[in-house]
Lab assay of single mutants.
Amino acid sequence: NQASVVANQLIPINTALALVMMRSEVVTPVGIPAEDIPRLVSMQVNRAVPLGTTLMPDMVKGYA
């Protein structure tokens, strides 16, 4: 199964993503693939992302 990017902490709106904020986990539904974690670093989220939430492409500015 494909691992997705999951929030490792609460990520406030407009926060630039850092490695420590993300982990990979096999979840349903599938979100952003875990292999894209390096690409996500320094991109901003466009909403608050609670701990344990799967990151979806529409949550990250400039990802989709």
Rank of each mutant, 00 (worst) to 15 (best):
Pro57Asn: 05
Asn1Gly: 14
Glu35Cys: 09
Ile32His: 02
Arg23Met: 05
Pro50Phe: 10
Val6Ser: 00
Arg23Ala: 05
Glu25Ile: 06
Val45Asp: 00
Thr28Asp: 15
Ile37Cys: 04
Asn14Tyr: 15
Thr28Val: 11
Val6Trp: 02
Ala18Leu: 14
Asn8Glu: 09
Gly31Pro: 00
Gln9Thr: 14
Ala7Glu: 02
Ile11Gly: 00
Asn8Pro: 01
Val60Met: 04
Ser4Asp: 00
Val27Gly: 03
Ile32Met: 03
Ala48Thr: 12
Ala18Gln: 15
Val49Cys: 06
Ala18Met: 12
Asp36Cys: 09
Arg47Pro: 02
Ile13Gly: 08
Ala48Phe: 11
Asn14Arg: 07
Ile32Ser: 02
Arg39Asp: 05
Ile11Trp: 02
Thr15Ser: 07
Ala7Pro: 00
Gly62Ile: 04
Val6Thr: 05
Gln2Gly: 15
Arg23Ile: 06
Gln9Glu: 11
Met21Glu: 00
Leu55Gly: 01
Pro38Ala: 11
Thr15Asp: 03
Asn14Ala: 08
Leu51Gly: 11
Asn46Asp: 09
Thr15Gln: 10
Pro12Cys: 06
Val60Glu: 00
Pro57Ile: 05
Ser24Asn: 06
Pro33Asp: 06
Thr15His: 07
Ala7His: 01
Val45Cys: 05
Asn1Tyr: 15
Pro57Ala: 13
Leu19Pro: 06
Lys61Gly: 08
Pro50Asn: 09
Gln9Lys: 13
Glu25Leu: 10
Ala64Lys: 12
Ala64Asp: 08
Val20Asp: 07
Val45Lys: 00
Met59Pro: 02
Asp58Lys: 10
Val49Gly: 02
Ile13Asn: 15
Val20Ile: 11
Asn1Phe: 15
Val5Asp: 01
Val6Asp: 00
Val5Phe: 02
Ala34Gly: 13
Val26Asn: 10
Leu40Gly: 00
Gln44Thr: 15
Met21Thr: 03
Leu51Ile: 14
Tyr63Gly: 03
Val45Phe: 01
Ala16Tyr: 14
Ser4Val: 02
Val41Phe: 05
Asn14Phe: 14
Pro29His: 04
Gln44Arg: 14
Thr54Met: 03
Pro38His: 09
Pro12Arg: 09
Ile13Phe: 12
Ala16Pro: 11
Leu40Met: 06
Leu51Arg: 15
Pro33Trp: 09
Ala34Pro: 06
Asn1Glu: 15
Ser4Leu: 02
Ala48Glu: 10
Ile11Tyr: 00
Asn14Lys: 06
Ser24Ile: 10
Thr54Lys: 04
Pro33Thr: 06
Met22Cys: 03
Gly62Met: 10
Ala3His: 10
Arg23Gly: 06
Met21Cys: 04
Gly31Ala: 03
Asp58Phe: 14
Val6Cys: 04
Thr28Ser: 14
Gly31Asp: 01
Ala7Leu: 03
Asp58Leu: 11
Pro33Phe: 09
Ala18Thr: 15
Val27Asp: 02
Val26Glu: 15
Ile11Phe: 00
Ser42Ile: 03
Gln9Met: 14
Ser42Tyr: 14
Ile11Asp: 00
Met21Ser: 04
Ser42Cys: 09
Thr54Phe: 03
Gly62Asp: 08
Val60Asn: 00
Ile32Ala: 01
Asp58Trp: 15
Asn14Glu: 08
Ser4Ile: 02
Arg47Asp: 05
Thr54Asn: 02
Ala3Trp: 13
Thr28His: 10
Pro38Phe: 13
Leu10Met: 10
Val49Ile: 15
Met21Trp: 04
Pro50Val: 09
Pro50His: 10
Val5His: 02
Glu25Tyr: 07
Leu17Asn: 01
Asp58Ala: 13
Asn1Trp: 12
Ala34Phe: 06
Ala18Pro: 00
Glu25Asp: 12
Val27Asn: 03
Met59Gly: 03
Gly31Val: 02
Ser24Gly: 12
Leu40Cys: 03
Val41Trp: 03
Pro50Ile: 06
Asp36Gly: 05
Arg47Ile: 13
Ala48Gln: 14
Val27Ser: 04
Leu40Ala: 00
Ala7Gly: 01
Leu19Cys: 09
Ile37His: 01
Ile32Trp: 02
Ala3Leu: 12
Asn8Trp: 04
Ala3Tyr: 12
Gln44Asn: 11
Arg23Trp: 04
Leu19Trp: 12
Ile11Ala: 01
Pro38Cys: 06
Ser42Lys: 12
Val30Asn: 15
Val60Leu: 09
Ser42Thr: 13
Ala16Leu: 12
Ile32Leu: 05
Ala16Ser: 09
Asn1Met: 15
Asp36Gln: 12
Gln2Glu: 15
Val49Trp: 03
Ala48Ser: 14
Ala34Met: 07
Gln9Ser: 12
Ala48Gly: 07
Ser24His: 12
Gln2Ile: 12
